[in-house]
């Protein structure tokens, strides 16, 4: 009797596990269904290549704005992030300073984008007087993506086999020479992957952007001008009640972009890990 009951419980457990997996797939399926079915048919050449003035609420200017803000953010965040990762993986010894640095990185990663947005508004927009501008947005975003870059670059550096570095050092190369000629080139695809990952985050980000770069719907004339990125545009068009067609189309462009970016990042990571697993065999 007891045994039978136990078996029933087992079966119920498996059913719950199987159902949960199905629900996860189902949710994704439902979201993709809407995006693909309602979004993709509404993406037209005109929608992608015109600005606000035309018959469409075109997104050409918005795509360009997004690219500008990505550029500004990367110029600031990539050197700092990569250098920080090099320090953590190649130089740092366990100790108080490293613990504090790691705690800060983890904490930054846990801060939600609205707080970044609020901080950017208080600090860059108001205090430094940068106003709602691409520059304010870029500064804010570069703090936001810093943990992403540092963590994944560190991962990439760690995959480089110790023997490579030791061989170089044993041949009399200096530590710096080894870093720039051996370690960094070996981990290059992983570092690229970390940069691409952070591009994905920037593209998907909205709360931190609209509070610092504003929402002006036109091509910004300079980095001191306000502009809206694709994700912010998506929010604005949902909020301002553009047609469903246009908003779904924007959603589709956004999701496809992010998916491609994440896929590229994953492929690069895989290239890196394959390179060294083959070398070991």
């Amino acid at each position: 009797m007891n045994r039978k009951f136990g078996r029933l419980k087992d079966t119920l457990g498996f059913v719950q596990i199987g159902l949960s997996a199905l629900v996860t797939i189902g949710i994704l399926g439902l979201i993709l269904y809407y995006i693909l079915l309602k979004g993709i048919p509404n993406i037209s050449w005109g929608f992608l290549t015109t600005g606000f003035d035309s018959e469409y609420h075109g997104i050409a200017d918005i795509l360009l704005t997004t690219i500008f803000i990505i550029g500004i953010t990367l110029v600031i965040a990539v050197p700092i992030g990569v250098f920080a990762a090099i320090y953590l993986s190649e130089y740092a010894k366990q100790g108080r300073i490293v613990r504090i640095i790691r705690f800060s990185i983890e904490s930054l990663a846990g801060i939600p984008s609205i707080i970044y947005g609020l901080f950017g508004y208080i600090f860059f927009v108001l205090l430094l007087g940068l106003k709602f501008s691409l520059l304010s947005g870029g500064f804010t975003l570069s703090i936001l993506v810093l943990p992403t870059i540092i963590r994944s670059t560190e991962e990439a550096l760690k995959t480089v086999p110790k023997s490579y570095k030791e061989a170089s050092l044993a041949l009399g190369a200096s530590r710096l020479y080894t870093l720039f000629k051996i370690t960094l080139p070996s981990a290059l695809s992983g570092i690229m992957s970390s940069v691409i990952l952070s591009v994905g985050r920037i593209v998907g980000e909205s709360a931190a952007v609209f509070m610092t770069a504003g929402m002006v719907y036109r091509l910004p004339g300079s980095i001191m001008d306000s502009g809206r990125t694709l994700a912010v545009h998506m929010f604005a068009s949902a909020n301002e009640g553009f047609s469903f067609d246009e908003t779904w189309a924007t959603a589709a462009v956004l999701v496809i972009l992010v998916a491609i970016i994440n896929l590229a990042a994953r492929l690069l990571t895989r290239i890196l890990s394959k390179k060294f697993s083959m070398g070991k065999g």
Partner: peptide
């Protein structure tokens, strides 16, 4: 990877 605005919409 889906951005939060898309979930919202």
């Amino acid at each position: 990877g889906i951005p939060s605005v898309v979930y919202g919409y």
